[in-house]
Design a protein around this nucleic acid. Structure first.
Length: 382
DNA sequence: TAGCATT
């Protein structure tokens, strides 16, 4: 059983301020319209501000969702965002070769109001070890691809804001990040800057690579970041070429290579099987027949004493940090549409569900004390 | 010297 369950207070109380602070940092960087930095072909929407780009017609319903947990499926993504409103389309982006999630996806709503509501309620939601980011998708075009820079040799004292200030003269920054030591929290002197457009990134390389930032003693290195999916594909190909039965494998060799491929995927992505046998209180169980709470596709949790105005998003916020949540449901009165005081949450893994129950049972939500347990087979009469 | 932002 995992022992690193998240504190509930961190899940709801702190997630939003953190994300809001991060967004304020991003939005504080207005675009610098550096006309001289562009090549012969310029793009008409070149100097739009963040506010203007958010009002482009086709971006009012289409959202991009970043920092999704690695094992989250498209169906779970749809379930989460479908709790806000009707979805026109939903796509989790996967590596074309390995099929692994790239950690982001798109959700297109029918109603722009639902898209806005999704940003307001789901941006900053903690799911497992991730804090998801929900924002309007920019209109897709070749010019915004491959605009991510990898920066190394940064002064250890440089903050994210200072990094952005350094790079913002070359264009609109979409995201920035300084990597830190997981234990000490001290900067590792490397980071990423994602520009709105590739031409801006190119100019930043020209202007800042091998240059010393203000006050620094050593020059920094600025180059295009590796594409994470490319890196994995290269690693896979490299491993396959090194295998004894390389190049033209027959059926037997293919099976062995498939085995190596699976292991490589596990190493590259840290994938743990969703279908491996689970140890439950010392007893190994596969199917979970007659085990309370197990519904075939996951572990169903009963949440009692919810307020009449409770909605699905509060269940996502409460349970998401503890692990993979596949579905949430608030039971409502048919006539009033108000919550009848209880709801259900389905989680994939037993250990994560158990930690969630142990942590959330007895939790005070508003003026109510929640009762949280595995769902029993009691029938609820209408 | 590496995290997953354009389907």
């Amino acid at each position: 059983m995992r022992t690193d369950g998240y504190r509930f207070g961190a899940a709801i109380g702190l997630a939003y301020p953190q994300v809001i602070a991060a967004m304020e940092t991003q939005l504080s960087n207005g675009p610098t319209c550096n006309n001289t930095s562009n090549g012969p072909s310029t793009i008409s929407n070149n100097c739009s501000s963040p506010v203007e780009s958010g009002s482009i017609e086709d971006s009012k319903t289409n959202l991009i969702v970043n920092y999704l947990p690695q094992n989250m499926t498209q169906e779970e993504l749809k379930s989460l965002f479908g709790s806000i409103g009707e979805i026109e389309s939903c796509k989790l982006v996967r590596d074309k070769i390995t099929g692994q999630s790239l950690g982001y996806g798109f959700v297109n709503y029918v109603d722009p109001k639902d898209a806005e509501k999704a940003i307001n309620t789901l941006n900053g939601l903690r799911l497992q070890t991730k804090t998801i980011k929900v924002s309007y998708a920019r209109p897709s075009s070749a010019s915004i691809r491959d605009a991510n820079l990898y920066v190394s040799g940064l002064p250890k004292t440089m903050t994210q804001k200072e990094l952005e200030q350094l790079f913002s003269q070359y264009g609109r920054i979409i995201t920035s990040r300084i990597l830190v030591d997981q234990v000490t929290g001290v900067s590792r002197g490397v980071g990423f800057i994602r520009f709105d457009r590739r031409v801006e990134a190119e100019e930043a390389i020209k202007g800042l690579n091998c240059q010393k930032p203000p006050g620094a003693t050593e020059p920094i290195t600025v180059k295009f970041a590796n594409n994470p999916s490319q890196k994995t594909s290269q690693a896979l190909l490299s491993q396959l070429y090194q295998s004894p039965n390389r190049r033209y494998p027959g059926p037997l060799a293919q099976q062995a290579q498939r085995f190596r491929l699976d292991n490589l995927l596990n190493m590259a992505y840290g994938v743990k099987s969703r279908f491996s046998p689970m140890a439950i209180d010392g007893v190994t169980s596969l199917a979970g027949i007659n085990i309370p709470g197990h519904a075939g596709t996951g572990w169903c949790i009963f949440v009692y004493n919810l307020a009449p105005d409770a909605d699905e998003s509060i269940l996502w916020q409460m349970f998401g940090p503890f692990g993979a949540v596949t579905n949430v449901k608030v039971i409502r009165d048919f006539n009033t549409n108000k919550c009848k005081g209880f709801g259900f949450v389905t989680m994939t893994n037993y250990d994560e569900a158990a930690v969630a129950i142990a942590s959330l049972n007895g939790y005070r939500l508003g003026d109510r004390v929640l009762q949280v347990s595995f769902k029993t087979n009691k029938t609820h009469k209408a």
